[in-house]
Design a protein around this nucleic acid. Structure first.
Lengths: 337, 337
DNA sequence: TTGAAAGCGATACCAC
DNA sequence: GTGGTATCGCTTTCAA
């Protein structure tokens, strides 16, 4: 094996075994240039026998292309990112690209290093799916690598973005609440520096409800707050303000909240209506019955990939921003009053 | 920028800007060898100004190491894999490695190419999380790359594995059903060629129930069968055999089934008890209330990473197989009779 | 302490 | 059609 201890076979090993030059091997295996049938046959057999797999690093180094799209994800365990990941992977595969993902483990510092890891791999394009990383950090590499932000609107002039229209979504679901006849509502709001998108949607809920003359109890749902504390506040709002519904910024939080509330004797929807946001598998299931806003994840993922690949293959393509509307899923957690 | 059109800066650009040799830059940036404070200062400034990120391909090519672990996943949208992914990423980060994942889009052919992609990237280690790919395919690269199979037992002598003890799990949850007093149960069984693990657990359920004198209606739940058909069979089993409980091979299938059954007028658990398997976020939530078997995903992920990295850093380490026991989560979907 | 030079494994452009 | 040769960007001896 080229003398090097049990390591991977190289193109030279294949060439030697096939009795041809490495140029010939390269041509056959990449299907470019000319070669005789005889050469092809010998090379293919040698490669198969050796279990040869070309070194992508060497290949990428000289060709300057990796046919790989890097996906930066905020939290590998989030259902929204999981769904996005699956869609993007599929679409990229259709277009001849591979997706590799990395994750910051929650802190901005980690996300920066995860992004740097992707850049160091020289991925051809970047899709950033995180409401956490500041645009400036993302934009730093945009002049060199085609970059698209998925899942959040992005103002930066060098960045394209595809996202769910959070304001429309928050407004729409707030309308559902108002239409159901509720007159006092709790809205769990998230600070902007926690997650830009969640902040936007919860603000939109508050604004719309107020516009429709619904009393709003605005409760802080920062990521650092224990769900138990939030639940306590919600119960308070029920007692003191007569709130009959709680609007959550995500289905995930809604689920945790329902759980904690039950332990405190408050049953959703019997005692309190609730709405979520995201509408992603598996919580977006009729049996579970969440009333929520379904983000157009399929379209977001697909268009994000189309956008990056578009810019990879034609860097002159102008920056684009696509705002996609979600739709309300009517479940059983929002009762009319 | 080294003359090449707006591309990424190279070590030469940094060297030029700092007024030193590229060797000096390499030493400073990788923190190896000796260099003066003055040199360090200039190099670091130049690198920062240029936004220099070292090319991992070039680095890996010469060093022969990527500090990357490749994770092959069957289905990016599966909750079990998602959970595993998150755990592994975290543990790998603690140990100084990065995880990149690829997915076969469901077919064996795609998984082979996804695996090859990982091999071509020359990841230092491989964690295979798929019940689909045959061991022979996985084992092909094991002599060259440290490989661990996570989530399924693996007989192959070159492969280590960490997995949930499916037989114990199936047996344990079957015991819960028998203990609840049910005398006729439907078990949804999955063919071995669909998913080895699901097959094993459902067989264990059947065996245990029979051993405890529970009548079993064994229903085919192949992946290709529409959930609607399965539901119809379940209703049949209730009518004709008096089944009072249905045991599902996964929480996911259980959720879909509950949904379809409701549309047919059968309410879980009012009319029919049900059990799942996996016990992973977000379905493993008390509010949802599935009675299920929780796989020890955290331990599986963590130990898989420890195992690969162990073998990466000491290839002489012997192959190991770790079977981990799951635990029953008592929810509200299994009623006593 | 520093820089020059030799590769790592592939591709691509050459003459032959 | 085929095989040499110059890179690609970096790490790593090895002299100076």
């Amino acid at each position: 094996m080229n003398g090097n201890r049990g390591a991977q076979p190289t193109i030279l090993d294949v060439a030697a075994r096939a009795g041809v030059s490495k140029s010939a091997v390269s041509r056959v295996l990449s299907g470019t240039g000319r070669f005789s049938d005889e050469t092809r046959e010998r090379v293919e057999r040698a490669a198969a026998e050796l279990g040869y797999v070309a070194n992508a690093m060497a290949r990428g180094l000289v060709s300057g292309r990796t046919h790989t799209i890097g996906m930066l994800v905020r939290d590998a365990s989030s259902m929204v990112y999981t769904a996005l990941h699956a869609v993007m992977e599929r679409r990229a595969a259709e277009l001849g690209y591979r997706v590799v993902t990395t994750t910051g483990v929650g802190r901005v510092e980690d996300e920066k290093s995860a992004l740097a890891a992707l850049v160091s791999m020289r991925v051809d394009g970047l899709v950033v799916c995180s409401g956490l990383l500041p645009s400036a950090e993302i934009a730093e590499f945009a002049p060199r690598i085609a970059t698209v932000v998925a899942g959040r609107p992005e103002l930066h002039p060098a960045l394209s973005s595809v996202y769910c229209d959070e304001v429309d979504g928050g407004t729409t679901i707030a309308d559902a609440v108002a239409n159901a006849g509720h007159t006092t509502a709790v809205v769990l709001t998230v600070p902007a520096d926690n997650a830009i998108t969640q902040h936007a949607r919860s603000r939109a809920m508050v604004d719309r409800l107020r516009g429709r003359d619904v009393d709003v109890v605005d409760l802080d749902a920062s990521f650092v707050r224990p769900t138990g504390d939030i639940a306590a506040d919600v119960v308070d709002a029920m007692r003191h303000h007569g709130a009959t519904v709680v609007m959550c910024p995500t289905d995930r939080l809604m689920l945790e909240l329902c759980d904690v509330l039950r332990r405190r004797g408050v049953e959703v929807p019997r005692d309190l209506s609730a709405t979520g946001f995201d509408g992603v598998f598996p919580l977006a299931n009729a049996w579970i019955g969440f009333t929520t806003l379904e983000q157009p994840i399929d379209r977001i993922g697909r268009e994000a990939i189309d956008l990056v690949i578009g810019r990879i293959e034609d860097p002159a393509r102008p920056v684009e921003h696509r705002s996609l509307r979600g739709t309300v899923i009517t479940g059983r957690t929002l009762l009319p009053r």
